[in-house]
């Protein structure tokens, strides 16, 4: 464990908490993409199956359980409890166009052709594009509540911090994982224009408005 990965995991945890608080406090999931939340649940489910047979550390196990519970909890809030506030007309990204290519690529490019390894690889590829429906929704509505932009900033920062973790591990621990690194860079790049808007607008107290 290193400071970059710890900060990354905490940023990730904070993002998930901010989202749950936003939905619970405002009793609304307006501006949030349920499609992205479904993709995140698929990512965590396919990646954390090793909870059953591999124990790394208490921290690792607890965080995996928290991420799984929070992602399914968010889906429950969005599609059941506060279903009336779900923006079904704008949340129209076809996630099958993200799931299928990730699955196909995982079958072709992986470290080993074994079920758990393929599922892990699939979850890495899917996570790199899982935010697209959310960014698509923000671009369609043209704006985002400031708490939603804080959520996105934390979520985007988590994988950006992981990139520093991978650089650190390459030099300090002599190992790397190219699949995770390439997918992590793609994932972070997708947030770039959002990061720009967040830093130039939201941090100045303005609302996040995308140029129409």
């Amino acid at each position: 464990m290193n400071i970059f990965r710890l900060l990354g995991d905490l940023s990730h945890l904070l993002a998930i908490i901010i989202l749950l608080v936003k939905i619970w406090k405002t009793r609304s999931c307006a501006g949030i993409s349920g499609k992205s939340q479904i993709l995140f649940a698929v990512v965590y489910t396919s990646r954390y199956l090793d909870l059953i047979n591999a124990f790394i550390s208490p921290y690792n196990t607890i965080m995996k359980i928290v991420f799984l519970a929070a992602s399914y909890g968010t889906i429950y809030l969005m599609y059941m409890k506060f279903k009336a506030t779900y923006d079904v007309n704008h949340d129209t990204f076809r996630i099958e166009f993200l799931i299928a290519p990730a699955a196909v690529l995982a079958l072709i490019v992986n470290h080993a052709f074994e079920p758990l390894e393929i599922l892990w690889t699939f979850s890495i590829y899917l996570e790199s594009v899982a935010i697209l429906p959310q960014l698509f929704l923000v671009s369609k509505t043209g704006e985002a509540e400031s708490i939603t932009s804080h959520y996105l900033f934390m979520l985007g920062s988590y994988r950006a911090l992981y990139i520093f973790n991978w650089i650190y591990r390459y030099y300090a621990e002599n190992h790397y994982d190219l699949i995770a690194i390439v997918a992590g860079i793609v994932q972070t790049v997708l947030y770039c224009d959002f990061f720009y808007l967040y830093i130039t607008k939201v941090l100045k107290g303005k609302k996040l408005q995308l140029p129409a």
């Binding site: 990965r5 995991d9 990730h12 090793d50 591999a54 790394i56 550390s57 690792n60 965080m63 995996k64 991420f67 470290h111 892990w120 992981y162 973790n165 591990r169 390459y170 002599n174 190992h175 790397y176 994982d177 190219l178 995770a180």
Partner: peptide, 10 residues
């Protein structure tokens, strides 16, 4: 540098 094998990251 060897390829990362154990999955110790979240």
């Amino acid at each position: 540098k060897e390829q990362n094998k154990e999955k110790d990251e979240l």
